[in-house]
């Protein structure tokens, strides 16, 4: 994949499929230190599953036998000298505070760092696909910050209009772009 934002889309789909109600995707950049964190309150995984995640021949899917989401991201991180760590609490063992935290670190000055690309499309695509999930997207880079909290949007829209409505998605795209435009000033 040519854009890190596509890896972020792919990896966050795992949280969606885990049945999460709240998902936080956070990107923090300090100098060449690039950190991605995805936190969800989905069903979580037992330790033996977490241990097998880096194995490309492990997957929960049934249509075919390879799952490449986590191995892809791990490769992208490790090729810059970074890495991926995953901690998870399974719903059976932690009925009240289950979920998964994924953290990936990258060295953005490394020649093999995959550029972030169109992160706004990744945010919009996630909301379009799961309009009932509450997403918190946050991107902090040195002194600048971007934040999108679908809870706040939902408060304005009420229950009549879903977040997957095309006009709402257009508004979200504009809202995020406007925040990023401020970064260049």
């Amino acid at each position: 994949m040519k854009e890190l934002s596509l890896y972020i889309l792919d990896i966050t789909e795992n949280s969606v499929r885990a049945g999460a109600k709240n998902i936080t995707v956070s990107i923090e950049e300090k100098g060449s230190e690039f950190r991605l964190t995805v936190i969800d309150d989905g069903c979580g995984m037992k330790q033996e599953i977490v241990d097998r995640l880096s194995d490309p021949f492990y997957t929960t899917r049934t249509t075919r036998k390879v799952g490449l989401g986590v191995p892809f991201l791990t490769l992208a991180a490790e090729q810059t000298g970074g890495g991926v760590s995953i901690t998870s609490k399974h719903i059976d063992e932690h009925p009240d505070d289950h979920g998964t935290v994924l953290e990936a670190t990258f060295d953005s000055s490394h020649i093999d760092f995959i550029p972030l690309g169109d992160i706004v499309s990744t945010f919009v695509t996630l909301i379009q696909g799961s309009p009932d999930i509450d997403f918190l997207f946050r991107h902090i880079k040195d002194g600048s910050a971007m934040e999108l909290d679908t809870k706040q949007i939902r408060e304005v829209l009420g229950e009549d209009v879903p977040l997957s409505n095309a006009e709402v998605l257009g508004w979200i795209r504009g809202f995020v772009n406007e925040q990023y435009d401020e970064w260049d000033k």
């Binding site: 304005v156 409505n165 006009e167 508004w171 406007e178």
Partner: peptide
């Protein structure tokens, strides 16, 4: 910054 009124207007149009 981005006027929430704009979003509220979408709601009115769409509901």
């Amino acid at each position: 910054m981005k006027s929430l009124q704009e979003l509220a207007a979408i709601r009115e149009r769409m509901k």
